[in-house]
């Protein structure tokens, strides 16, 4: 599977602090990927590096195999919607579309006008007078009218009400179905992520903590419920990510190496939300493809 985006030991420094460091990840072509992590983890920095608005201080970032910022062709293949979906407030929607058509070599005017029409967005309204949901929709239309192969979205729905959020995700999924666009979007809304994404990237403190296909990650992780077991006495359950105990019962969230046959454990599936929260709560845990040195946990950890 080829990568739309790949980073190797990527680092970006702001003054004395590193916004991103030692960050290695990939997003396969054709996937809808979620970029998840706490505030300040480096999500926006990563997206700005991918689109070429920032230059790396260390390591490499490759978009369709090339360094962003170097080639005009590459820039045409990447659509970007920055946080809070900024638009020129004094421009009408029609003027924004015209601006887009003048600034981009590849531009599908019909697509833009058609989508805006379907959304009932008045073309003569100034951007500053649109609702938050409409502004986000216009920003999305402007980003896809150049028919990018990769669409980068920085928390596009964070400020929207639930209805506008749903309408935005509906539009986005329609675009993916129509055009096969690869998407990487950062979000705190794990429910949205679970429904829409087939690839997951979790970043924490400037580096990637979890990278992989959602199906595979869900298949590898399990919740185990069993009788109270003392810490360090779990054998053959894999890597323990989270444990909690009552006087009668022990609950574990584990990354398994294979099926768990031990009769003491009641095994159940995890949701993506369980999984992400378990990793975010445990800075030492990682689920990365390839040879990765996992800290020795699970036994007495």
């Amino acid at each position: 599977m080829t990568s739309a985006l790949e980073t190797t030991d990527l680092g970006k420094r702001y003054g004395r602090d590193w916004g991103l460091r030692g960050c290695s990840l990939r997003v396969p072509v054709g996937s809808v990927a979620a970029l998840v992590g706490p505030n300040g983890a480096g999500k926006s920095t990563l997206l700005h590096l991918a689109v070429g608005l920032l230059k790396p201080d260390e390591g490499e970032v490759r978009v369709f195999g090339k360094a962003p910022g170097d080639s005009r062709e590459l820039l045409e293949q990447v659509g970007f919607v920055a946080q809070d979906t900024p638009l020129y407030p004094d421009f009408t929607v029609a003027e924004l579309v015209k601006l887009g058509s003048k600034l981009n070599r590849t531009w599908d005017d019909d697509l833009a006008v058609d989508r805006l029409g379907k959304l009932d967005i008045p073309l003569d309204r100034k951007a500053g007078r649109l609702s938050g949901g409409q502004r986000a929709q216009v920003a999305l239309v402007l980003a896809i009218a150049k028919r990018p192969r990769l669409l980068l979205l920085d928390e596009p729905v964070a400020a929207l009400d639930p209805l506008a959020r749903r309408e935005f995700m509906q539009a986005l999924m329609g675009i993916v179905a129509d055009q096969g666009t690869t998407v990487l979007h950062s979000s705190h809304l794990l429910g949205d992520v679970e429904r829409t994404c087939d690839w997951l990237v979790v970043v924490r403190k400037g580096s990637a903590q979890v990278v992989g296909s959602v199906d595979e990650l869900l298949a590898e992780h399990r919740t185990l419920i069993g009788p109270r077991t003392r810490e360090g006495e779990y054998s053959g359950v894999g890597t323990v990510l989270r444990e909690s105990h009552t006087d009668k019962q022990t609950t574990l969230l584990v990354r398994t190496g294979g099926p768990i046959h031990h009769p003491a454990w009641n095994v159940s599936d995890v949701t993506l939300e369980d999984l992400v929260l378990a990793y975010l709560a445990d800075p030492n845990a990682a689920a990365l493809p390839g040879p990765v040195s996992l800290p020795q946990r699970g036994v007495g950890a």
């Binding site: 993916v176 179905a177 829409t196």
Partner: peptide, 13 residues
């Protein structure tokens, strides 16, 4: 496409 859009889920699903 219609299912993906109306339910706001990934078309691959």
């Amino acid at each position: 496409r219609e299912v993906a859009e109306s339910l706001a889920i990934n078309p691959n699903t």
